[in-house]
């Protein structure tokens, strides 16, 4: 059943009825071509060409980081409640575009059921995190006992620009698992999309563009990790790198070493799902993945704690 649908859709996309789509980077709220002018072919499971996707370079990373830095203050200064509303809006728009994502994921080799499951999980995760924006300070902020006559309190603040290295799979849920805590935290981000399954991540940019997310808060760059990880890990204006343990050990070591230059925080969370389980990702795995991603501590890791001493009289 799944296979049939997949080949149907492939032949459909090659017919005169539909035109092939160019997937582009998403930087500063605009869909821009890569500076390199180079592309790679994303293939369906049966080997048929689906789309050309940009092989971005360090210049695209530079542009994305610049956009993220410029947008950061605006996003960080929004009220927590407003950030929550905007993130919730992403879920609303994603809901409406469910079919587009399903179609693309089937092309890439997902079964319809697996695709729908992952998208449902994504929507659930967005709604979950949207709720956290105005509760972080309430739950994790603190009033601290001190010996002097001071009112001493701590609260979480955004840390800045975050580089997100997406796992290859699950490309959409994995990306959101890394992205959402940062959005909630008030950071702005540069996402390096999954190389093998970039389409859902690229299409997610269309969701962002049509929701209320201000330009520059989420920037998406496609291409090879070998081209993109060195410039982002060396970049002095990136404050955090996050990824997961499915990333090659060499790249993880490079991130750690290069991050010393400006003391980036580097986090590689436990890998979500092994690559070879993609086609048969059972519901339970997605459910497990979703559950493990629902964790407010991911937000705390990408925030700074500010502690204030305020003198009090008798």
């Amino acid at each position: 059943m799944a296979k049939e649908q997949s080949s149907d859709l492939t032949s459909h996309s090659n017919s005169m009825n539909s035109i092939p789509k160019t997937y582009k980077n998403y930087i500063n709220g605009e869909f821009s071509r890569t500076e390199s002018g180079r592309y790679y072919s994303v293939k369906a499971q049966d080997g048929k060409h689906i789309a050309n996707v940009g092989l971005s370079t360090k210049k695209d990373i530079r542009n994305a980081v610049r956009a993220a830095r410029k947008a950061h203050e605006f996003w960080a200064n929004k009220t927590a409640y407003n950030r929550g509303q905007i993130i919730y809006r992403i879920a609303e728009i994603l809901c409406g575009r469910r079919e587009q994502f399903t179609t693309e994921m089937i092309l890439l080799g997902y079964s319809r059921e697996a695709a729908e499951n992952e998208i449902q999980a994504c929507i659930e995760l967005i709604v979950y995190y949207a709720g956290w924006t105005d509760k972080i300070a309430q739950v994790f902020g603190s009033v601290n006992p001190v010996a002097s006559k001071h009112f001493n309190f701590s609260r979480q603040e955004p840390i800045g620009v975050v580089g997100i290295i997406c796992p290859e799979t699950p490309s959409l849920l994995g990306m959101l698992g890394l992205l959402l805590p940062n959005m909630v935290a008030g950071n702005s981000q540069v996402i390096i999309a999954s190389k093998r399954y970039p389409l859902p991540v690229c299409t997610f940019a269309e969701v962002l563009a049509t929701s209320d997310v201000p330009p520059g808060i989420v920037n998406i760059v496609t291409g090879s990790k070998a081209d993109l990880i060195p410039p982002i890990s060396k970049h002095m204006d990136v404050n955090v790198l996050v990824g997961d343990t499915s990333l090659d050990a060499d790249f993880r070591i490079m991130c750690e070493l290069e991050s010393a230059s400006n003391m980036k925080r580097v986090f590689f969370w436990e890998s979500f799902i092994p690559l070879n389980e993609l086609n048969s990702t059972p519901n339970e795995t997605i459910a497990f993945c979703l559950n493990s991603l629902k964790d407010p501590y991911y937000i705390l890791y990408v925030q700074e704690v500010k502690t204030t001493w305020h003198p009090v009289s008798e």
Partner: peptide, 9 residues
């Protein structure tokens, strides 16, 4: 240095 810079510095 081969590193993109930050205005912070």
């Amino acid at each position: 240095t081969g590193r993109y810079q930050s205005l912070n510095y």
